[in-house]
Design a protein around this nucleic acid. Sequence first.
DNA 1: TCTGGGGTCCTAGGACCC
DNA 2: TCTGGGGTCCTAGGACCC
Length: 411
Amino acid sequence: METRTILHIDANAFFASVEQAANPELRGKPIAVVGGHGRTVITTSSYEARAKGVKTGMAIWEGKRHCPELIIVVGDNKKYQHTSTKMNEIFRDCTPEVEAFSIDESWLDVTHSLSIFGNAENIAYLIKARIKYQFDITVSIGIAPNKLLAKLASDMHKPDGLTVIAPENVARTLELMPIQELCGVGKKMQRHLNMLSIYTCGELGRCDEARLTRKFGIIGKRLKQMGRGIDHSPVVQFAEEVDVKSVGHSSTLERDISDPVEIRRFLLQLSEMVGSRARRYSVSGKTIHLYVRYADFFSSWGKQTTLKNYINQSDEIYRAALGILETVELEQPVRLLGISLSNLKHQAEQLPLFEDERKKLFATQAMDTLNDRFGRMSVTYGTLLPGKETAGSHVIPPSWRPDGIKNVDVE
DNA sequence: TCTGGGGTCCTAGGACCC
DNA sequence: TCTGGGGTCCTAGGACCC
């Protein structure tokens, strides 16, 4: 197999860096980017804030406890999307093989660009310089023979790092590397491996495969490979990316609610968000999942139902979700509601046979077009209009991709 | 003012069919 | 009277990623 050269590029404290670049008054100061309104958490904090102990996921009050002078900035998704898209354009100047992993991380397979640029470090320095010049933000870059190691490498020096794991240094680098540094080993997996006296990648790579398979099933083999730094997964360009498996939307309410009318209104709103996104990407699905988190935060449940037909109309999604809701007795006021549509298939463009269905389709398309142009929920079903806006925060999820199906609704 | 939101993949058990 | 095993589809839940 051909030796590959993969770059992993990770924008440092992305949302916070974009804000600091846009507003000189924020530079050099501890800032935290949070979701719009409602009950929100810190999505990103600047390095100045991190130094004081502010972490992603903290509530605002918690962040301020660590750092009283913390400046709270409400996130601006449009800015981040724009920057991310432009950054990926810079990457594509170096190789067409770019895979956007999230809004602030991409992999580049530069194997076939090396002859043009000389070597991978040149590419990395070029990218760093262009991004610094154009956006005034820094990135950490990892260079390695595969995606797993490139990602590991980009994490080793932050911010503004450049780390190379050459093929001949893989074993030495991994020998003492804690297993939890590997992408794919989370808290639970770490605990399980620790119980087997496995703490480092070196130990993981030497572990008997049968032992790992007994404990972890099919993942056991993969784990051993990860410990040895083996990863054959390709850098998948956007155009050839596999189809999405589900489209969902969930939101924490501004306050806990138990009024059935309010709950239904919110459900309809979520249905519209899921439906419009599914329609925009021409998918429909037949499994509806409803998720409810109660006021105490800890108790929650999810129920799903599979229909005979594939649907993507908001009112159909709403009816299915409501059907699920009606099978349960709510035990507490509701904190969060979520709906997702799965079991998806690509919807061929086809006009319905019957006049009333055609009318409905045209009406939906007109509504989607207006909402695309003037913003989400400018036009919607009548029952949504009265009453106050209940949509939760507008935090952009890191699963967002620069362009394509995972694009999330923004204002 | 305690604790977000978007996904993917895997497993286990039950129903049902052949 | 007692009995198989493979395959598929479904629901529920957990772990992981950003």
